[in-house]
């Protein structure tokens, strides 16, 4: 699926990276613990998280991820959005909870 599909499925708002919405993604992971993302993630291109700080963007960048979905309606600061823009990472914001958001994407064909 594309990042645009994720936006639609999760009823999400695009916070930055509108120009990258047509990029293809195949795998995702959901976690609020960045250490675990660094430890266990391999080639996942989407991170779903309820954690909102600069380290989320830095962690995603270290893992070459294309998109971060902030769940539970969490709103990142302008500084966080600016860093994601600098790295070319799409930021989405969804009102859904982490479990539901992951479940919907899985149901629609995104793998873990």
């Amino acid at each position: 699926m594309t990042i645009a599909d994720i936006k639609r499925i999760l009823n999400a708002e695009v916070l930055c990276g509108e120009q990258h919405l047509e990029k293809e993604v195949h795998n995702a992971c959901g976690s609020d613990m960045m250490s675990d993302v660094l430890a266990f993630v391999k080639d996942q291109s989407v991170l779903l998280t309820g954690l909102v700080n600069l380290q989320v963007v830095r962690t995603a960048e270290m893992m070459d991820m294309l998109c971060i979905v902030f769940v539970r309606g969490k709103k990142p600061t302008a500084e966080i959005i600016a860093l994601a823009e600098e790295f070319g990472i799409v930021l989405l914001q969804s009102p859904l909870r982490l479990f539901s958001a992951c479940g919907l994407l899985y149901q629609n064909g995104l793998n873990g």
Binding site: D32, M34, S35, D36, A39, V56, T59
Partner: peptide, 16 residues
């Protein structure tokens, strides 16, 4: 921990 770290994975991750 508030920043998503402090789970005791730092050095094990570095070794990995």
């Amino acid at each position: 921990r508030h920043l998503g770290f402090g789970a005791g994975m730092g050095l094990p991750n570095i070794k990995k």
